[in-house]
Simulated scan of single mutants.
Amino acid sequence: MTSVSEYPFSQVDVFAPGPQPGNPVAVVHNADDLSAEQMQSFANWTNLPETTFLLRPTRPEADYRLRIFTPASELPFAGHPTLGSAHAWLENGGQPHRPGELVQECEVGLVKISQTANEQFFEAPPLRHSGPLEPEVLEQAITSLRITPEEVLDSNWVDNGPGWLGIRLASARAVLDLKPDFTAMGQLNVGVIGAYGDGGPADFEVRGFLPGLAIPEDPVTGSLNAGLAQWLIGSGAAEGNYTVSQGTALGRGGRLTITSEGDSIWVGGTSRTVVRGSVFL
């Protein structure tokens, strides 16, 4: 019989100020002796959008190192797992080098995380891929969203690790009405954003689709919103500070805060632990 070990475990709800839930992330603490195969197998078993593993850092500037897995593959970076894992690390006794600021090491490099009394914010990492979509990619995205080219106000690569592309529609209602064809979407990771008018629950509604990563629709997505913010603020299509609603189509109550400080863009929200205990792997 294969031997197993016990690891502290947290399940954290991220971007959920309440009462509706946001996006869960499973967090395994002290996971240094787990192999990538064990991590992937457990992430497949949890069947959550992401499962993370906290490890000792390899860089002196970092407070901890994080590996992030979907049910199908490892990601170099993701936003809601970053904030949820930071919350779990602090709750489990983690002591940052600098009060009020954490530095996470992950495949994209070092990610800064700041905290207020009610929210944590991560600094949007540099985009790995930006600029206009190739015509064939845009055509595939439009077809998979079951919309017409005339409905697209703008599009751009907004990839900071997961491979996101962004599509801007005329309204939040248009975003909420989408009924994607995930077979046609294939391996594309498509984020869609549209503005609310006055009186909306936020400034924008966002939806994120990742069928190639076994996540047809992600409830609330930090990495996508970071990339969209860099694109929209950089192009002048959005103000430097705004709010986002995501997960509405799935019955979730995700809320994100986008804040600009100089050349940096920060993505924030609330996190709360809903499960705490041990796992045996």
Rank of each mutant, 00 (worst) to 15 (best):
S41Y: 00
W45Y: 13
R59S: 05
E50I: 03
N92V: 00
P49M: 07
L54N: 00
A72H: 09
Q20G: 01
Q40D: 03
H97D: 04
R98D: 05
R59N: 04
N23Y: 09
A72Y: 06
H29S: 03
E61A: 15
Q95V: 15
N47E: 10
A26M: 04
A43S: 15
F69S: 02
A43K: 07
Q20P: 00
P81Y: 09
G84P: 07
R67L: 09
F53D: 07
P17Q: 11
E37A: 15
A36G: 14
D63E: 08
R65T: 02
V14T: 14
V28M: 05
P49I: 11
P81K: 12
P57D: 04
P57M: 05
P57F: 02
T51V: 11
P19N: 01
D13L: 06
P76W: 07
A16V: 11
P71E: 06
D13I: 03
L55T: 06
V12S: 03
E6A: 09
A26Q: 02
F53P: 03
N44C: 03
R98W: 06
S73M: 14
S10H: 15
P8R: 15
Q38R: 14
Q40L: 11
D33C: 08
E61M: 08
P81W: 12
D33A: 14
R56I: 00
G22D: 11
D63G: 07
S10Y: 15
H80N: 07
A16N: 08
R67M: 03
R56S: 15
P60V: 05
A43M: 09
A26G: 13
L55M: 15
E6F: 01
A36C: 01
P21I: 12
F15A: 07
A86I: 05
G100Y: 10
L66P: 02
T52S: 15
F69H: 12
L75Y: 06
P60I: 04
L55F: 00
V27I: 13
A72S: 14
F77S: 07
L66C: 05
T51L: 09
L75E: 04
G79I: 06
S85F: 07
L75M: 12
E6T: 14
F53S: 06
A31W: 04
F53H: 11
S10R: 13
N23C: 09
T58S: 14
A88H: 13
T82E: 09
V12N: 04
A78I: 11
E91R: 15
Y64E: 08
S73H: 12
D13M: 08
Y64V: 07
E37C: 00
G22V: 10
P19W: 10
A88Q: 08
V14R: 05
Q11V: 07
W45T: 13
V28Y: 01
G93M: 12
E50R: 01
T52A: 08
E37G: 02
